[in-house]
Design a protein around this nucleic acid. Structure first.
Lengths: 312, 312
DNA sequence: AGTTTCTATAAATTTTATTGATAGTTTTTC
DNA sequence: GAAAAACTATCAATAAAATTTATAGAAACT
């Protein structure tokens, strides 16, 4: 048994297809066929059920894949140990970021980070929280920035900052005249909300859902569509909630529509999250340092109340 | 990086010697030299400090060895998964047994076990508790039978049985006339005790130590030397304590010197212990079943008080 | 039925691991 | 302190293994 064979098994299991898996492994398809067969012979068990199309894992196959993922990950950790010892911070690093954080946070820290850690080849992907969770679990990304807490068993979180929500209330809205808004003022029926599953806790979650159901066919809120949200709001479709960092970007006229909340200000917790195996932890810590540094100057709210991203 | 390379690293780390390690791996010494060098080149770090004689691990080397052991063990588990799925119980299995359990328990279950599981190649070694712990940790044995609880972080325990202690009190002893003995009757100065670090809790531990200090030069209690203990006792050197199963073997005359304890009878807990990675768990469970089966008929005490094997 | 898609197989080739022989060190022994 | 022994590294030769190219065969799609 070799680590390579296990890696091939993982690739086939993920792609459900020898040919595609071979491409991803940068080898030819017969290589996979033969190596996997060799492993199956050695273990004397079939890992894949080749009668099914597309190919499926057998029952034992599933367990073997889980264990194989373990072993392959743990093998990466050896290089990690060496890097850590040397204080080396470099290599490829894949970072996922949720859409509502991407456009505001990324420009704030990217230059700094690249300057400070030029040997790291950052590959950043905009991903929804669900995608992030599955890609952290299968190792397709090394870490991600998302709203927390997520309560995922195999994922660890380190809080980067708390980002308050700010109400955006267009002129014609019943609440527009209020200087400060209270959470209790919010009403389901005239609220446009963010994607990412970021809804308010308890009762307000339902509103969020109600809104989604009602509008699924009419609108499609694309990723990073905070601008769209503002425009829809301007059109009189309701008020909305903006994460604080977004309010720094909008134009002066629209700024007049911003209403801060009474304390405790509702806020979201934004964290860097990663697999519990803690691979490439030096880079994760480097990211944490840089981001915490740039945020320290940008957000200075004190009395916040964290809104869970989980719609329970 | 290959599992084989990691295995070679483990072998050299254990033997502190390339030549010996090569023998244990059934390859020649240049194979180890070259493969380990190759790994070191790839990681760009020295795992071994070859200037020291005998060879030593570098600081990174130590961490790499820990991780390598992980990976190698986890790789074995894949065959384990397959065996478990098939219900296959077989292969080589190394079992350690402490000296005071070996002569009484082994004959009771060995035949049964071999008959029931003929495909298992049992290799049994008599080992002291300390040796057992280290050999379970480095994978040199698959499981062991020892007195518990041990409170070892990486070792799991499954209780097999509770074995009461029986006093052996020679004729000339002050307690000989008592029919039943109470734990409070025991006195340091006239007790011969077992090896294995099995001492009574609290106060009596000290007695045990006192005895050892006093006699280290005069006697050497060998493994499995319960017979010796009885003979020493007969010579008037003091009373002693026998694990219950040993009392089934002694001759009729000596049986007259046996005195059971008042309830709660002091007893030791005997368990099958194994690494938390739970490799070869099917065989461990098979052993547990067979041993529990044969013991059920042999020991029928009810009110026992467990004596910890740890001399705190 | 013909075409496409996919996996298995076979032979050739490249890569990698292993060996046997030996040189160069260090340690041990007398 | 010189000779012997023990140990690791290196080199060229060999054995073993992984990979590739080419192709056959099976299943799915049109």
């Amino acid at each position: 048994m070799t680590i390579t064979q296990l890696y091939y098994v993982l690739a086939v299991a993920e792609n459900q297809n020898f040919t595609k898996a071979a491409e991803k492994c940068f080898v030819t398809q017969p290589t996979l066929s033969m190596q996997i067969q060799k492993l199956e012979d050695q273990l004397d068990v079939l890992i894949f059920d080749r009668t099914k199309k597309p190919i499926e894992l057998t029952d034992v196959g599933k367990k073997i894949v889980t264990q194989a993922r373990n072993i392959v990950n743990e093998s990466y950790r050896i290089q990690d140990i060496v890097d850590q010892q040397k204080g080396f911070i470099g290599g490829e690093f894949k970072l996922g970021i949720i859409p509502t954080v991407m456009p505001t946070l990324l420009p704030m820290f990217l230059k700094n980070f690249i300057k400070k850690h030029p040997k790291v080849k950052l590959k950043i992907e905009e991903l929804a929280t669900e995608e992030i969770i599955s890609k952290i679990n299968d190792g397709h990304i090394d870490a991600a920035i998302a709203a927390t807490p997520l309560e995922e068993e195999n994922i660890k979180e380190r809080v980067l900052y708390f980002e308050p929500f700010v109400s955006y209330i267009p002129e014609n809205h019943r609440l527009h005249k209020h200087k400060k808004i209270d959470v209790s003022d919010l009403d389901i029926d005239d609220m446009l909300l963010l994607e990412d599953g970021h809804c308010f806790r308890d009762g307000v979650i339902n509103l969020c859902k109600a809104f989604k159901n009602q509008t699924d066919d009419q609108f499609q809120l694309e990723s990073g569509s905070i601008e769209t949200l503002i425009k829809l709001s301007n059109e009189g479709l309701g008020m909305t909630l903006l994460p604080y960092l977004h309010t720094l970007d909008i134009n002066d006229k629209e700024k007049e529509n911003l209403h801060h909340f009474n304390d405790p200000t509702p806020a979201r917790e934004v964290s860097i999250i990663y697999h519990k195996s803690e691979l490439k932890m030096q880079i994760i810590e480097a990211l944490q340092d840089v981001i915490s540094g740039v945020i320290r100057g940008a957000i200075a709210f004190q009395n916040v109340e964290i809104i869970s991203p989980l719609a329970k």
